[in-house]
Amino acid sequence: MIVTGKGGVGKTTVAVALGMRAAAAGKRTIVCEVSAQENTSRMFDHAEVGFHEVEMEERLWSISIDPDESMREYVLLQLKVRAMRDMLFRSRIFNYLAAATPGLKELVTIGKIWELARLDRKTKAGRMYDTVIVDAPATGHGVGFLQTPRTFANIARVGPIHSQAQTLDRFITDHDNTGVAIVALPEEMPVNETAALEHDLVEEVGVAVDRVYLNGLYPERFSKEEAESLSALAAGEDGAPKAAARAALSEFGRARSQRAQLARLRRRVQAPVKTLPFLFEPDLGPEAARRLSKRLA
């Protein structure tokens, strides 16, 4: 399950909540971060995990996928002779090309995700997972990340990179086993962007978009009639009651305009939309993610 969406929509929170949900359902689950920012481990109030599969909770692991480490691991699996790989890692040409070849980092990152999802893992002490959840990079650059395997398959017309890139592309676009979830916010432009993103993911990349999560939906705390009676108070004399009335009207206004955005989103995307509530909490931690995970049932 690949969790994507534009920056700042709460991808990490949703990815972790999905992970908790799967683990609670008895699945051995790993949440993969690819941005090296350790947002996931922070979400669990855990120390940084790095390029290691670390158990966060029962049946729930986390890893931060580092492209350099993935590349190393890949070469190690390809070359069995130690002298050969030592020579390669020391080689200036190899290091230069590894650093400079565009898209290679994304490719080896997807390669690692593929490796984690395999049932016969080749890495030492590789655990078997039922569910792999990816907290994918923000979609600022369009759908580039998920398209990398195909781009490489096209660049390398034949040879091992070509066939491996093709394998990864098939993995990404395997509708039976791989799905994408888009996280959106109930605002005008994020809704537009989500619709465009779903279109590109389905039409250009060919992945299955299984669900759209509309995150941060304000609860409907006040009725229209109540809002009307609050308006007078909000226009009245200064003080705490006025400020409280204004906060209530603000909540009412947001909840209402967000419902309109939810309706727009439902009209504009193909995948089913699931809403997640806005949490009035200063800082989101593991407990907040757990509460959201219960809403994902």
Binding site: L79, L97, V158, G159
Partner: peptide, 20 residues
């Protein structure tokens, strides 16, 4: 061709190296 390159060709494929 150096040994490094021949190893790389094995992993990456000759065409891609040539294109690069």
């Amino acid at each position: 061709a150096t040994v490094a390159l021949s190893v790389m060709k094995r992993i990456v494929g000759f065409d891609l190296i040539a294109d690069l």
